[in-house]
Amino acid sequence: MGCGEFLVKYILFFANLFFALAGIALIGLGVAVELQVTEVLEIFDESLIFQLTPIGAIVVGCIVFVVAFFGCCGAIRESNCMLITYSLFMIVLMILKITLAVLIFVKQDELLENIPRWLTEAFSRNQTAFHSIERSFKCCGPNGFISYLNPILPESCCESTPCLPNNAYSGCNTVVKDFFETFGMAIGAVAIVVGAIELVAVVFALCLANHARNKNRRTRY
């Protein structure tokens, strides 16, 4: 094996270690968002993007991890079949991740603008049920303690008791909006970075696959 093939082989191997870690990162972000938003999914039933983005991140992260492991094996063994299969999977994954990122960045502003309206409507319908959102996000009412029009606030509005305006959390409109904005940007950014590096990995994998195919041909003569 020449110096060039050696470098391609191990660059591809370590790149797939990065992909495996990136897959774990996507899974972690998706799980974190899914656990955090369990209490508010009914409020966001008008938006499939909010409901499907964390699940999509988890699914894509799992697939990335499995394919990255496959790529590591293909690179070490210099298997033409495994490398070609890996390249096809990576192209599909790259398209999925770019699609996920585009959906997040294109739809995010529109969805974030609707969060205050959804939370206000939920608060008006059932204040008792709204307490679960306050406990989950550590916030108080849609607009802070003034939402209750009462100096004695529910315990879900504060970290300590008695719960009064001076120790109440911020309003849920701002807290929930910031949460989705931060994690949406994080998931989108990870997806784009990984997708860009995957394109380079596909080129390297095809080069190594070509080298492996030529090597097998030479051994037959």
Rank of each mutant, 00 (worst) to 15 (best):
M1R: 12
G2V: 03
G4M: 08
E5R: 14
K9F: 04
K9H: 04
I11G: 10
I11D: 00
I11K: 00
L12C: 03
L12N: 05
L12I: 02
L12T: 06
L12E: 05
F14E: 00
A15I: 01
A15W: 06
L21Q: 01
I27A: 11
L29Y: 02
V33H: 02
L35E: 09
L35A: 01
Q36H: 11
E39D: 08
E39N: 08
V40N: 06
I43L: 14
F44E: 12
F44L: 15
F44Y: 15
D45L: 05
E46F: 15
L48H: 14
L48Q: 14
L48P: 10
I49R: 10
I49C: 00
F50V: 09
P54C: 03
G56V: 02
C73S: 12
C73Q: 13
C73H: 14
C73Y: 15
G74F: 06
A75T: 06
L83M: 02
L93Y: 03
I98M: 15
A101F: 07
V102D: 03
V102F: 10
V102Q: 04
I104Q: 05
I104S: 07
D109V: 03
L112Y: 05
L112A: 03
E113P: 00
P116T: 00
W118Q: 13
E121L: 03
E121V: 07
F123R: 00
R125L: 13
N126W: 07
T128K: 15
S132H: 08
E134V: 06
S136I: 03
C140I: 07
G141Q: 02
G141W: 03
P142E: 04
I146E: 14
Y148P: 09
Y148T: 09
L149T: 07
N150K: 13
N150Q: 15
P151G: 08
L153N: 07
L153A: 10
P154E: 05
E155W: 01
C157M: 11
C158P: 11
P162F: 05
C163I: 12
N166A: 14
A168N: 09
A168T: 08
S170D: 15
V176D: 09
D178F: 14
F179V: 08
E181I: 01
E181Y: 10
E181N: 13
T182L: 15
G184S: 13
M185W: 14
A186D: 12
I187L: 05
G188W: 10
G188N: 13
G188H: 11
A189M: 02
V190F: 05
A191L: 06
V193D: 05
V193M: 08
V194Q: 01
A196R: 07
E198P: 04
E198C: 11
L199H: 03
L199A: 09
L199K: 00
V200L: 13
A201N: 00
A205M: 05
L206D: 00
C207P: 00
A209G: 06
N210D: 05
N210K: 03
H211A: 14
R213I: 02
T219G: 00
R220I: 14
Y221D: 06
Y221N: 10
